[in-house]
Design a protein around this nucleic acid. Structure first.
Lengths: 251, 251
DNA sequence: CACCATTGTGTGATTGTGACACAATGATAA
DNA sequence: TTATCATTGTGTCACAATCACACAATGGTG
């Protein structure tokens, strides 16, 4: 038992030296089977699911921390993260309470009293991503349907909700999300993606005309032969032409 | 000299107990004479101008901190602040360097090593606001033209730039900013405001038709007699109808 | 080989936007 | 008092964008 407290003392020293009271939480969206998924994980020893997140080191660049934490906790690498909000309500987290709930005496409390969390979100191609519970704190890591998100740790439900709102707003004013589909896709698949994310259905003909009018979709040979009806064209997303489009229509 | 170091020791203890490594910086926009102004202040003992900002207390709610800091440093109260970004580059601030530049020995360094700053912006009616250098750290506090912003402290130029970009984006997709004008205003004044903030000129007739079509502007009696030509109508902004409009066209 | 759900594309009505026109207004100066 | 004239309120028209709907072509199914 004495040994345990020595370890706890070491942990406390280590944490105080290296950890800030700043954390990052990542909301990772994936798309599959006409449903938007979200990546959640369960921390070892905890019964609750949570967003992949972690502490920022004391002098660490915040954006770098976001990528490091996502990699450490889910194995995901080199995906684009977008900061969307800082969550700083003073009752969102209570280090003392957590320690006492776990049964660690106050003098060995190694957690900061408060935590301000900076939210990042990402869009990834669902089928290419293989989330892993890499680090020693992650027990399980998997995709959830948006409608089935359970009660999450702290204010993570609110963080996820804000991320979704921000994502939808971005979809409303510029065509994005092509990285959520496989390389070759049909216009119907693209439409389903938009409908799913924006949360409303759209006219098929109008959607196709509009998408093609942007000029950055390249039509391939027919195929998509699996279906039981007329075979739709497959399209490819042309990143260069997309960049050119953005230069013209954005700042 | 011994006494000075005693005081410095006290300051260090106090700061370590009460201050986080989190700060708030406020970008306050005001509108006057067809120009967008920004509120800057000079800290005592410093030669540089900076955004009104300050440290967040250790367990303080971040949003409350933003209002407190703005009030303390500029005297501004009960104006609407909007969070827009967290700035966390690890080279944006260096507590040690600041201390050594001022000549305080390392053992009395009372500043955190790093500072992550959460940016808030606000729009205020220029003529109603009387910024004051209230607190003991503020030497001067005044409005600046956007084009004349000097070199600012740390990354405050970038923070102000991001705030302006965010503000313009918000203007693009919803009609706001009525609190920048006096209670009664002409449509031309409203148009000049929009042109100034969005950075481009617009057709007078089209602008008026569009604004009136929203249905939340109430036309009063003629007046605005000061001008040398046809007296334009005055309008009042109807907050209730505006809220109804937002409910219909926003989430 | 007829069937039929789905696809590619077309059409017309409606709405929104940009550029411009013109009479009405009201202070100013003769 | 009256002519002047910059500015205002409002209208028109062309054009683009959007929406709702239509219909022939397609290609696997029974």
């Amino acid at each position: 038992m004495d040994e345990l407290f020595t370890v706890l003392g070491d942990i406390k020293t280590l944490f105080n030296q290296s950890l800030s009271e700043l954390s990052v939480d990542c909301v990772v969206f994936g798309f599959h089977d006409n449903q938007l998924k979200i990546l959640l994980l369960k921390t070892k020893g905890s019964s609750e699911w949570s967003l992949p997140g972690g502490w920022i080191y004391k002098t660490e660049d915040v954006e770098q921390a976001a990528y490091r934490i996502l990699q450490e906790r889910t194995g995901l690498d080199s995906i684009y993260l977008q900061q969307f909000h800082a969550f700083g309500a003073n009752n969102r987290y209570n280090g003392k309470e957590i320690m006492s709930r776990v049964g660690i005496p106050p003098e060995y409390n190694f957690l900061p009293e408060r935590a301000v969390s900076i939210g990042y979100y990402a869009l990834v191609e669902y089928s290419l991503v293989e989330p892993k519970a890499d680090d020693p704190f992650t027990e399980e890591c998997r995709w959830w349907d948006l409608e089935e998100i359970p009660e999450l740790l702290f204010d993570h439900n609110q963080i996820a909700h804000t991320a979704l709102k921000t994502l939808r707003r971005q979809f409303d004013y510029q065509p994005i999300g092509f990285n959520l589909l496989p390389e070759k896709f049909t216009l119907i698949e693209l439409q389903k993606l938009h409908e799913t994310i924006r949360g409303r259905s759209m006219d098929r003909g109008n959607f196709q005309k509009k998408m093609l009018s942007y000029g950055f979709l390249e039509r391939l040979e027919e195929r998509k032969t699996g279906g039981a009806h007329k075979a739709p064209y497959l399209y490819r997303f042309d990143e260069e032409k997309y960049a050119a489009y953005l230069r013209l229509n954005d700042d």
